[in-house]
Nucleic acid binder design. Structure first.
Lengths: 149, 149
DNA sequence: ATACGTGCAAAGTATTTGCAAACGG
DNA sequence: CCGTTTGCAAATACTTTGCACGTAT
């Protein structure tokens, strides 16, 4: 996925525009979360967002992180992905619809992105048949690190 | 899915056999949970199990339910499915590998099963390519009830 | 008899909510 | 200025753990 940087700016702009449109103001916490998310290529947990923002010297209260994420999910700007117990993950939704799925390591819990053209096609067909409008696939298996160990 | 009743007995037997094999004794709580699960066609939350067992007049402590479920997942007898925040869902895993996926209603949160032959095929291909050994698909969209409303 | 299973209650996490202060437009 | 956003702390919801007792083998 080499498009992260290129589209990040677009997504951040897009996100602020949508929020503005919906009558939301641009506060510091929200800006920080949107900015951080826009530079990520794969999903993060609320905790990871919290930690990274603090590390960046722009700490944001946990509650605000959850509130901002809720808002973003509600506006369709972010996808919520439940990869297992303990914590939900959040990832930017490109307006183009371009996206990937995830493979979770059974052993260490690491989450990695993967994309598959054919699978995507089959899912869109299934979506139509079922009358759904979004989807997500989770694969499970040992990651390279754990396979080696 | 018309096979629920027919295979339930087999699965319950299978489950007890596997647990026995692994050196586990057959206590009351475990039996009650296995029995209930075996009669279900779709996934239940721990809370739902708790409630239904109580309603059946065979109350089981919440802790035991979680412990039994952990054990069943560990032995590959049950699949854990995270459909959203709040609670994980659990569903029997047929030894045959036969299974379905789920569609979650954006509105009311209801979870319904769906199966798709072609999709299943595409996923198996993707699994091979990614080196995974299990998968699960979640679709999202309004359910019939909510579409009507 | 003895180790595993169970239930209760206490402890942990992740997330949500109430509220007063800070802030954007 | 006024309503939104934020951060803190308290509250909640779900799940796990510690421990004493019950029970299967």
């Amino acid at each position: 996925m080499r498009t992260g940087i290129i589209t990040s700016m677009n997504w951040a702009e897009h996100a602020h525009a949508v929020l503005n449109e919906a009558g939301h103001r641009r506060g510091g916490a929200r800006h920080a979360v949107v900015d951080l998310l826009s530079h990520e290529d794969c999903c993060l947990t609320a905790q990871e967002l919290h930690d990274r923002l603090r590390a960046k010297g722009r700490p944001v209260g946990a509650a605000s992180i959850y509130r901002v994420l809720d808002l973003l999910v509600e506006q369709g700007l972010v996808e919520r992905i439940d990869t297992g117990p303990g914590s939900a993950r959040f990832e930017v939704r490109q307006p183009s619809g371009e996206h990937h799925h995830h493979i979770v390591c059974d052993d260490c819990g690491k989450v990695e992105p993967f994309a598959d053209e054919q699978l995507e096609h089959a899912i869109h067909e299934a979506e139509k048949r079922a009358g759904a409008r979004a989807h997500h696939v989770l694969l499970r298996g040992a990651c390279e690190d754990c396979r080696a160990a």
